[in-house]
Nucleic acid binder design. Structure first.
Lengths: 226, 226
DNA sequence: CCCTTGAGGTATACAGCGTAAGCTTATGAT
DNA sequence: ATCATAAGCTTACGCTGTATACCTCAAGGG
């Protein structure tokens, strides 16, 4: 009896916490995909019954919100003390990197309606960087909207590509070209055959092109009234 | 007996079809939200048992794919015979419009992995427009990636805004400003108070700004090697 | 005209889901 | 040692997608 107690105290169950739940859920989603993340399976991973999770999380929606905010907290904020373009580029690259590490996050749009503290902190920091660089409030809003649209849109497209590695591109391209008569979509076929399928093309490399397009455009407009 | 048969023939049950199922599903999702679209409820709307739907649709995933392709078919293709910038602007505006009419479509990223014919047709047409305007294959890929990232990203942000009408902006802004001490996110607070909450600001108006930013940038780079 | 046939629709059933309600157990303060 | 409280467990309910087997009925060939 007493020995049992001491044994138990020797290895005390370290209790769950909201943070442990969120981190486990993120790891699960990264690994097996968000669509197969269920409360029961997550409980199993944590050595716990499903209902125990509800002591640390209001419900699944709340858990997803929390997961998204953790993801936001992983993104670098724009560093201070450097040119605004450099700062914006660094935070954009970091944001894309994080979003591609957690591809499920971009799809949880419900969660973005209730932004968590990390999300708000991120927004504030970006706007602050732009304002400090001399952007008017109006231009800062324009700039933020344009940049974030591009970043999230790129992450969304990257995630929904039907291939993940370079090797897969060839297979997918081939099977696509077989499916349609190749005359139905001539330009698409040309693009695939002539370029995508050759050389070391990777979609990820496209990110910098569009990002610089937006940043250069913003620089030109910075001081114009709009 | 015979009269019964003739009566039945007078109003023959017009059978379901894949198209009718898809259109009803789209209407349902537009109306009640994609998250509450279930096979049983959809069957109910169509006056049919849930399992009947499976005669016209392989499974729910296939149905969602089909819905997304219908949405793509609603987007205007870039018109021929006008300046490429005009054509691109028109198709971009149409795409955003369609995506904001069917806000659920942008989140169905799984479906974009198996693009339907309307989706492929759209891609082909856009690439064709750029190539005809003198873009190299490489530059056309760059341009397409940049434009679509911006369009989808904007649609995604627009959808995940916590307000839908102008009136709601004020309420949301007020409740947000109350929630955080206002010193935590000073720039965010400033932006909300000084600009967003005033005047006739609407997020939708931001679309044109970023779009022209990208289009102008592309024009400048069109003939450069990359 | 009858009979077959196959497509369209139904009935039933099952495993898995989120989670409400009430219970037991472990922990930390008194 | 006691006891309040937090952590975890059990059970149960209504909902989901869909496999399987069945029924019904209009169309076409004999």
């Amino acid at each position: 009896m007493i020995s049992l107690q001491t044994e138990r105290r020797a290895q005390p169950r370290n209790p769950l916490s909201r943070e442990r739940v969120l981190l486990a859920a993120i790891a699960f989603a990264d690994d097996k995909g968000i669509e197969s993340l269920s409360m029961r399976k997550l409980g199993q991973v944590l050595g716990v019954e499903a209902m125990s999770l509800y002591k640390h999380v209001a419900n699944k929606e709340d858990m997803l919100d929390g997961m998204v905010d953790v993801v936001f907290s992983e993104m670098d904020l724009p560093p201070q003390g450097v040119h605004w373009k450099t700062a914006m580029r660094l935070r954009a690259v970091s944001a894309r990197e994080v979003l591609s590490l957690h591809p499920w996050a971009i799809g949880l749009t419900d969660s973005r309606m209730k932004p968590g503290p990390a999300n708000l902190r991120h927004h504030d920091s970006v706007i602050g960087c732009l304002r400090a660089a001399g952007f008017s409030i109006e231009m800062a809003i324009h700039a933020y909207s344009a940049l974030d649209s591009y970043i999230y849109g790129f992450a969304l497209q990257e995630q929904s590509l039907p291939f993940e590695t370079r090797d897969e591109i060839g297979e997918v391209a081939e099977s696509m070209l077989q499916q349609f008569p190749a005359d139905d979509y001539p330009y698409l076929a040309e693009t695939i055959v002539e370029h995508i399928n050759k050389s070391g093309w990777e979609y990820g490399d496209e990110f910098a092109f569009g990002l610089d397009l937006v940043l250069d455009g913003l620089e030109r407009l910075r001081d114009k009234p709009s």
